[in-house]
Design a protein around this nucleic acid. Structure first.
Lengths: 200, 200
DNA sequence: CCTACCGATCGGTAGG
DNA sequence: CCTACCGATCGGTAGG
């Protein structure tokens, strides 16, 4: 009879993913060795290779899981009956909130994605594009002039918002004078008021 | 008598710096080998080590030179008789313009600085702080409420601007629908109109 | 200014 | 025939 998959297989896989994400974020993908990761996870290197065929697969899975969680969180951040402005704020708040326990994964997404082969990068970039589309949609809803044919504003304004939000990990400190909710309101306000003024 | 320094010493050093910056940006600091860099520069590895004691020194010099050029460019981007708004726009335009021929150096500053020992990082971060101070100063000048005692807005608004501008290299394309000058106006507008609305 | 190497450590795989 | 896991070590390459 075939040996069944261990019942804690998925828990172990998640634990490996979290530990390796922290090591990759701290030391960088190239410098965090498979030996260090195995040691940090309390497993043998051979077991590590049982879960992941190679180091790249580990990196890919970290970023894919992270992006899937961001997309899910953002999609739940707004409802169809909201106004465009409420929707955009809901998305920004949900995204900043999702980053709370995913600082390591966020750094890895930003800094280490380019270590992967082109094909795997493409699969991850498709997820990034989905995330961008959600925000661009809310922005178009909130400031319809941005989406008018001939307007070149939607892309730079959307990317400005991503710049703000994806840059926050470099200066934002938990428990500081500005909370995540505060910054969600600030970022939404900068983008919306600015965009309305630009569109006028 | 001591051997005099070669008359083209500085030219060679700058050429090494530019070539290695491109290799670091393309492959990452850890993967771009000193052998590759020597080959790319058309010099022997031994000559490379004549100019730079080790790989870290090369990385440090790339980022230091880059930051010094950014600070100089930004400082020349505005004059004291300008209004706060003109000053901020002058700074943003100067910074985006300085990035035009420094894409590799910018990527390295963002992605590879943490590979350096803490002491060297600190020296570079001091330069980053000077740059931030220039923008925070112009912002305070343009929207005085941001600098009022008790206000917590100056930092997040300044960092939002840096997020926008430092994120541009991921989406901006030379010769596209939006020029650097266009984006300087957009970013300045988003920040200024948004900040005024927040301060009110 | 070159080439020949070094101590160390890398990602990945062997047999059982 | 599958998956779960070990101690030991592979061929190559890094910075210097």
């Amino acid at each position: 009879m075939a040996r069944p998959r261990a019942e804690d297989y998925d828990d172990k896989r998640k634990a490996i993913l979290k530990t390796s994400a922290e090591l990759f974020a701290e030391h960088g993908f190239d410098r965090a060795s498979m030996n260090q990761i195995a040691l940090g996870c309390g497993v043998s290197k051979a077991l590590l290779y049982h879960y992941y065929a190679n180091k790249d697969a580990l990196l890919f899975d970290i970023i894919r899981d992270h992006l899937d969680e961001l997309i899910a969180a953002v999609e739940e951040g707004a409802t169809p009956e909201m106004t465009g402005e409420e929707m955009l704020h809901g998305y920004v708040l949900a995204l900043l909130d999702a980053y709370r326990d995913a600082n390591a994964e966020h750094k890895i997404q930003i800094n280490e994605m380019k270590r992967l082969p082109a094909e795997q990068q493409e699969e991850l970039k498709a997820r990034e594009r989905r995330l961008v589309q959600l925000f661009a949609g809310a922005l178009s809803h909130a400031v319809p002039q941005l989406a008018e044919p001939g307007s070149t504003l939607l892309k730079p304004v959307t990317m400005s918002l991503f710049g703000m939000v994806n840059w926050h990990y470099l200066w934002f400190r938990e428990g500081g004078a500005v909370s995540r909710a505060d910054y969600a309101r600030i970022a939404t306000r900068l983008i919306l008021d600015g965009a309305r003024s630009l569109a006028a």
